[in-house]
Nucleic acid binder design. Structure first.
Lengths: 327, 327
DNA sequence: AGTGTCGAGGACAACGTTGTCGTTCGTGGC
DNA sequence: GCCACGAACGACAACGTTGTCCTCGACACT
């Protein structure tokens, strides 16, 4: 900017005025300055601007488990749209379910002075973010609650969804239903497992422990779990899958086996309706969740709600065939 | 930091030294300063730091069509991994194929002084980025070349892939093959269409214009296009689809129709192998493309290659069934 | 005791902006 | 001719850091 001022033969402040469209510059001068700016390819340094103004940086951080997961990538897109509508930019990071990595990214974002942070928290304590919220950084937790900090939170109705999915299978006449879910220290996984147990209990169906398999969805683990569930002395006739990754892994494994148990998946996924047996799912609305979280963040930045909000987004059972198979 | 210095009863610079782990501070003082930092929840303002140092900001911008598209979300994740390995942060934006929006985002990133920009360019001229590259911002174009600017570029071998996919159908005995692709002003769409035409010509198969449908993949457009291709006087017996979105839309539309033409899709997609008729695809490697682009960016930041690099990532035909159906 | 040396720590400027306040100059009214 | 006034513009400080250079005291050596 100094260079521009020198080249245009005007003062520093005049260039600043032109750049910011402020009044008090004659059209002749402004034109000359603009020409020099164009010629020199000058762009204002937002870092310095923000430093001076002490204002918002116009950027928001989004921290989730994995951008490549369709659930999160849809959520991410929804967040982006809201952020964009507010004229802000979005920093994204994948925690890969590693709390150290999450923390590192979150603090990195804060060092860049993001206005707010939208986080899909890992299960570790998030007290380290307290100074940031105290310093005015808005914080919204999405998909899971944030352990160790009272913040705005947007959750799916995991338990009710799992109850609905499991109950749907039971209504088809199944009594032995298996459950495959993510690692139980993940909030959603635990909630959905609880929903499954509740639905089973509500229908007086005792649950045998071999019917339950919890863990990060890897093909081998799924294979063993399915073998145990489907070929034991009391084989299950139906499966409830706790998330899209697991559902897909199960479908892939089932494709290589003889058994064709009924199946309901938590999370909708593309092409679920086009499979040989279309897959019944308990659909979440990642777009709505992302949008809600982002809007909550900007409401918070406007200083609107006094107490932390807790919003629960309902799920929806979509019968497509796999969940309507008889025992 | 001023507050920390005051509270700890030391000078500003001493706090700075502690924060940066510089020598010249006694352990006693350093401990005291660290305690105050902890207590006050102080975090260094990276904006000011970078302003002072005039150095790299440790951030990179990624601009693509749509984070929610599985192809781009995988690419995005790969970029993120490399960026993280270099200790940088990632700003992400979706252009939604809108060049004005892309430009706005790109300039926004540059105002934040990102060290580099990885872009999936729209078809508009990108000369506006010339001043940025001149100012030292690294720039890499991925998935498509960047019109109007000579930059590092990572492309898939679109034409060869489309040739391979189309030739594969022709080898099954098809002579009338239809092509459905994205809007022809998109580089990849045009390249792949050209590959299709070339393969047809190589096998002396004349192409009739109703067999070709180019445009943004919307269900209605696909429906009309398929009706035209499949029910005209010279109906096609096979389809080549130009991208994952189109392939999925076509599959969905075909599911509601009687005809079951052979089909090869450009881009692999999850569950392609689990459909009623598993889908033969020309697979790209979005992870490799993303990683390559990001590594190129950091090489450029280290000042390594003199001239802009052009890297072409090969595609791979994966026969699964749909492409092996006879006429 | 005087001098040199070294470690600890502070004062100050500068990075690129913008808010505040002042200066200059032209115009219009008396 | 004088003054008031407003428009156009510039000088300067400040934002939070860090690099440079300085001071101060302790200690060892002559």
């Amino acid at each position: 900017m100094k260079d521009v001022a020198a080249a245009a033969g005007v003062g520093l402040k005049t260039v600043s005025r032109v750049v910011n469209g402020e009044a008090g510059v004659s059209e002749a001068t402004a034109g000359r300055v603009r020409a020099v700016i164009e010629q020199l390819g000058f762009r204002r340094n937002d870092g310095a601007r923000l430093l001076r103004q002490g204002a918002r940086t116009g950027s928001v951080g989004l921290l989730l488990e994995d951008v490549a997961d369709p659930f999160y990538s849809q959520l991410s897109r929804a967040v982006e749209e809201v952020v964009r509508a507010h004229g802000s930019l979005l920093l994204t990071g994948s925690s890969a379910e590693d709390s150290a990595r999450e923390r590192e990214l979150a603090l990195g974002f804060c060092a860049r002075r993001v206005d707010g942070l939208i986080v899909v928290p890992t299960s570790a304590d998030h007290g380290y973010l307290a100074p940031e919220t105290a310093a005015g950084t808005a914080l919204v937790s999405v998909d899971r609650p944030m352990p160790g900090l009272e913040v705005d939170t947007v959750l799916a109705d995991n338990r009710a969804g799992a109850v609905a999915g499991t109950a749907h299978l039971l209504r088809q006449g199944h009594r032995r239903v298996g459950y495959l879910g993510d690692a139980p220290d993940i909030f959603t996984a635990a909630e959905r497992l609880a929903g499954y147990r509740q639905a089973m209990a509500d229908s007086d169906c005792p649950v045998e422990e071999p019917w339950i398999a919890m863990g990060r969805p890897d093909p081998l683990g799924i294979r063993f779990a399915l073998a145990r569930m489907l070929t034991g002395p009391t084989p299950v006739t139906a499966l409830m899958c706790g998330n899209n990754r697991t559902t897909v892994a199960v479908l892939r494994e089932l494709a290589g086996r003889q058994e064709h148990p009924a199946l309901v998946g938590f999370d909708d996924f593309e092409l679920a309706d086009l499979l040989a047996v279309p897959v019944t799912v308990v659909a979440q609305d990642p777009t709505l969740m992302g949008r809600t979280a982002a809007e909550l963040l900007f409401r918070r930045l406007r200083g609107e709600p006094a107490a932390p909000q807790h919003i629960v987004v309902p799920t929806r059972l979509i019968p497509r065939g796999s969940g309507e198979l008889p025992p």
